[in-house]
C-alpha cells in the first residue's frame, strides 16, 4: 500500500494541518518509505491472535458519583488565546 499526493492532502485535512505543495511532496516520500517498512508485519501470522487491548491485566477501577471537581471557570479559560467573560472565543462556526 502506498499513498499518493491526494491522499497526503486528504489525511492532512483530516488531521487539520495545512500543507504546502512542497511539504506534501516531501511528506509523500516519507510516508511511503515508512509504510513500506512497516509492511514487513504482513509476514507475521496473526491468525487467531487477539489484538492487545492493554498491557496491564486488571479490572478497570470506577469512581463514585460525587461532585469533586470544577467550579473554577477562570482557571479553565485564562490560558486561552481569546476569551470573554468565561467563554472561549473562536472564529464563527456555521452549522
Amino acid at each position: 500500500m502506498s499513498v499518493d499526493l491526494a491522499t497526503v492532502r486528504h489525511i492532512a485535512h483530516l488531521a487539520r494541518i495545512s500543507i504546502s505543495d512542497e511539504d506534501a511532496k516531501n511528506m509523500e516520500g516519507d510516508l511511503n518509505s515508512i509504510l513500506e517498512w512497516v509492511e514487513q508485519l504482513s509476514e507475521v501470522d496473526t491468525d487467531g491472535v487477539e489484538p492487545m487491548t492493554s498491557v496491564v491485566h486488571m479490572e478497570m477501577k470506577k469512581r463514585d458519583d460525587v461532585v469533586s471537581d470544577g467550579g473554577y471557570a477562570e482557571k479553565i479559560v485564562h490560558n486561552a488565546p481569546a476569551y470573554e467573560e468565561t467563554f472561549f472565543m473562536v472564529p464563527k462556526v456555521i452549522e
Partner: peptide, 23 residues
C-alpha cells in the same frame, strides 16, 4: 448522575459558562 462520565465536575443545568468544567 451528579457528576460527569469521566470527571468529577457537576452536571447541573444552567450554571456560569465553564464553571462546571474540570481540567
Amino acid at each position: 448522575s451528579q457528576s460527569k462520565l469521566f470527571s468529577g465536575s457537576s452536571t447541573e443545568f444552567g450554571a456560569q459558562a465553564n464553571s462546571q468544567v474540570s481540567m
